[in-house]
């Protein structure tokens, strides 16, 4: 276990170094005065400008500049937004909880329904249930989610009026952002609105998270189905049947436990898919998360925000992948050495 941990740590450090090098190089390609790109509108010639110039090490070699960049990054200094003049790191973390809340909810939906559908399809292989799961997962997998989101808004929000069109919560509620997670914050503000605010937040969350869950759900269902089919034909399933283990236990304990192992890897890959989807979903639903923030930053040519945001997201994905690898080792006994 320690060995795996060490290996993951090495990969983490290497990936981080790689990412920062790439981003540093990309920063060289960005057109414009690097001082202005980093610190917003400073006039050349002023003392402030000269200080910033010094700070970035622009009069020194590229390697020095990179080291300064790394030092800044490690200290959490990702520059300032050229539009709002706020620290990029701070701004990122004000938007980040919204994205996490949305993504977690989406992955929860994807897992519950994806695994369920996959198992159901595998158990009823070659029946109409199986065919239904296969075809709907294929459609889900092929879905352009930005259109899917619009379609659901058209149906549920505009035509049926069941769900709100956009945002995280209605304007009537004044919720103080304590954790940044709306579901928790509305509960923390309980005495003020009782559960009304919480329900409202939940109602806002449903449609975006269904949209975001669509592709991962389809992938998980397909993956679970094929893993389960393979596992169910294994000898140990026969052994369990011969022992008299109930069908329910064979499927949901013996087989699923083994089928989960490849699923964990897929889940790791889905974190990246999920964040890609979050950019689109947040744009459609005006969800104030990092995805929407990044797209807006591009239109405003707010390079420090783009650069810092992507760097943070990449680090986040790498961290998730490392966690998934650890999880994989933890749930797969075959990764353990013979004692």
């Amino acid at each position: 276990m320690i060995k795996i941990l060490l290996k993951q740590l090495t990969i983490l450090i290497l990936s981080f170094t790689g990412i920062t090098i790439i981003f540093f190089s990309l920063a060289q390609l960005v057109p414009g005065d690097p001082v202005i790109l980093h610190y917003g509108n400073l006039t050349p010639g002023t003392e402030q400008y000269e200080n910033a110039y010094q700070e970035l090490g622009l009069d020194e070699s590229l390697v020095r500049q990179y080291l300064i960049f790394i030092k800044d990054v490690l200290q959490g200094d990702l520059g300032r937004s050229t539009v709002t003049n706020h620290s990029v790191l701070e701004e990122f973390f004000t938007f980040f909880p919204a994205t996490i809340e949305l993504s977690l909810f989406a992955i929860l939906i994807a897992l519950v329904f994806g695994v369920g559908a996959g198992v159901l399809a595998a158990v009823n292989k070659n029946t109409w249930i199986d065919n239904l799961v296969i075809s709907s997962s294929l459609i889900g997998y092929s879905m352009p989610i930005f259109w899917w989101g619009m379609l659901l808004i058209l149906l549920f929000s505009l035509n049926l009026g069941l769900t709100p069109v956009a945002g995280r919560i209605s304007f009537v509620f004044d919720i103080e952002p304590v954790t940044g997670f709306m579901l928790i914050d509305t509960l923390l503000a309980y005495p003020k609105y009782e559960f009304a605010a919480f329900y409202d937040a939940l109602l806002h969350l449903i449609l975006p998270s269904v949209v975001l869950a669509t592709v991962p759900l389809a992938v998980i269902a397909r993956m679970t189905r094929s893993a389960m089919i393979e596992v169910l034909s294994a000898d140990y399933i026969l052994t369990a049947k011969a022992k008299g283990v109930s069908n329910f236990k064979i499927i949901w304990v013996h087989a699923l436990r083994n089928a989960l192992i490849p699923l964990v890897t897929v889940l790791g890959l889905q974190s990246s898919v999920l964040l890609t989807g979050a950019i689109l979903t947040e744009t459609i639903f005006a969800w104030p998360g990092v995805g929407k923030w990044m797209v807006e930053a591009i239109f405003r040519r707010d390079y420090p925000s783009i650069q810092g945001g992507v760097l943070l997201i990449a680090v986040f994905v790498i961290l998730i992948n490392a966690t998934v690898d650890l999880l994989y080792a933890a749930i797969n006994p075959r990764m353990r050495r013979p004692e």
Binding site: S15, S272, V273, M294, I298, I313, V317
Partner: peptide, 23 residues
Amino acid sequence: LRLMDIILAVPSLLLAIVIIAII
């Protein structure tokens, strides 16, 4: 391989967006 891992670590659309932001 490391380079490819890094590209994979950035959500695909986001990477495309960044590249477009630059070029």
